[in-house]
Nucleic acid binder design. Sequence first.
DNA 1: ATGAAAGCGCTAACAC
DNA 2: GTGTTAGCGCTTTCAT
Lengths: 350, 350
Amino acid sequence: MNRKVAPTESTADQRRLQMADIARLAGVSTSTVSRALSGSKLVNEETRNRIADLARSLNYTINIGAQNLRLKQNRTVAVVVPYDNTTRQHLSDPFFLSILGSLADALTDRGFDMLLSRVDSEQLDSISLPYDTGRAIGVILIGQWRHHDQLNKITARGVPIVVWGAQLERQMYVTIGSDNVAGGLLATEHLIQNGRKKIAFFGDVKLPEVASRFAGYQQALAAHQLPFDAQLVVPASFLENGGNIAMAELTARNVEYDALFCCSDLLAMSAINILRDQNKLVPEDVAVVGYDDIELARYFHPPLTTIRQPIQTAGLALVDSLLNIIDQQTVTPQLLPTELIFRSSSAVTK
Amino acid sequence: MNRKVAPTESTADQRRLQMADIARLAGVSTSTVSRALSGSKLVNEETRNRIADLARSLNYTINIGAQNLRLKQNRTVAVVVPYDNTTRQHLSDPFFLSILGSLADALTDRGFDMLLSRVDSEQLDSISLPYDTGRAIGVILIGQWRHHDQLNKITARGVPIVVWGAQLERQMYVTIGSDNVAGGLLATEHLIQNGRKKIAFFGDVKLPEVASRFAGYQQALAAHQLPFDAQLVVPASFLENGGNIAMAELTARNVEYDALFCCSDLLAMSAINILRDQNKLVPEDVAVVGYDDIELARYFHPPLTTIRQPIQTAGLALVDSLLNIIDQQTVTPQLLPTELIFRSSSAVTK
DNA sequence: ATGAAAGCGCTAACAC
DNA sequence: GTGTTAGCGCTTTCAT
């Protein structure tokens, strides 16, 4: 752990400038400085400018901590990213990372700071800590995992929170998510319309979002009177080499398939690599559709057909919903539209 | 812009619990509560436990803002990621994102919070804002910057700052970076040893880090008495389709080459795609080496030989250096070792 | 072992 | 237009 104990105190010797110093140098009271720096018209323009210049030249900036305390305000939002405690893997998922970027943008645009923390997905208690300690005015949680009840409890306590994830039954907290049922439907329909009939599904159905994609998958099959074959459904985690394991499993089952719908692009890519080792051609022998449309999907060979989640919109929606909750407004969960990005990995060849 | 103005105040009606409330409920003074919660032995054990239980059951946590003000302490570190103001692209670079993850881990381990902000790379003044406003005790700056002088100025002002990047002349601030000269050398030597003689270089030499890799490239050529051909050096940005543009340029120059050293994996991947379109085989006709070893490098086809930067180590080094600076210790810039990851894109075929 | 009081850096009545 | 004063939520002498 190697926990540092000492530092934390800001540089002892060279004391930080504060309002009183500016006041003294300008020959006025702190009230005047305070007013001047906040642009109040109560203070004489000439004085105001003089003070502003002085502050600028000395790189003085109002201490936000003190200001917040006094004003009982706060412009910081906590963004919490759970990680899998066995692998610590999660911040490496390209999709989560893109969402982070879009959140950073949305928050910056609205003048909020972003406090980022990773928490062990088994210790989700601590997600409300930034709020409880007054560090942040609310929490954005990326990925709801399997912690439905805990999230309900936190919400009941009055913690402003918005979760990126699926909408579940008896849910008190607000979720923003993409329409995973539609995503699964879109992907599967696309494969069916291109002549595929035995479509394997790769994903961990225990995760709510994946369960929805699976539902979409089933709907599409049903809509086209295709039989559902449980043998074609392979559990696959998002981790490291989930794709390899899933492909091994599918191969072991010795079942015929002409397409793969994978619940993440990474899964799809590693699956394609295994297919290549098995001398199966993509898309000729097996068409593949991924999920997320990460940046590398289009650089892959073959370029990957995939379901795009609206990341920019997601960041905005998460931030705006949180701010509305804080603002006491009624906020409803949102399901953002998904989109099929058609590339060569599922090109028609049948 | 759609700037929100109202909220910022924390939920008006249901007042947040504070120490005075706990004190009243426990029938003691706030001093006692304060002491109890900080585990002081001055307070009777029985009382201490009673107060602790009460606080826990009410989800009361000490208000960090007030505590910090009183104690003049702070356990927040600012992490600043500049973005290119024309494209806003930078948070999507997988490499920067991995570093972010490792920073988050290192900070969490040491009990620090991470304040994440993106700033326009043309407005780097605001880098020190989190420090100037007292929000953070120091700044870690990640990434692209040609802002040497500005950073020197900020450092001279006494802002604790550590920068991820190359070490330059007359540099007052501390940099942590990987050994880019060695990286360039490693990649080029590898290609040479596998029989390649006309190695093209893709990268924007105006960036200090790329310049170092280029130096390594030249050193390797010289060491093996291979001629340097300026025609083989192609400027390529890290952006979007820098690879496509660079490949077009190289093709237009109509010069022979049997290998590519690309300054990022993304660059390498898009270049390989173009090569494929031109019916050139990788690695048979052209061997390719990338840089960064992003997660997808090994999923690519062919799996990409690349230079790995020590990301975990980097996060630790950045954080520890910053804490040492704050701690008034002497801190020297660090050059972390790079490593060649050999995969098929540069396999020997000559 | 506990409480009263002062003060961290700032803002906002309220005075003048 | 500017200064005086009280107080945001907490910790810590200094009393008791």
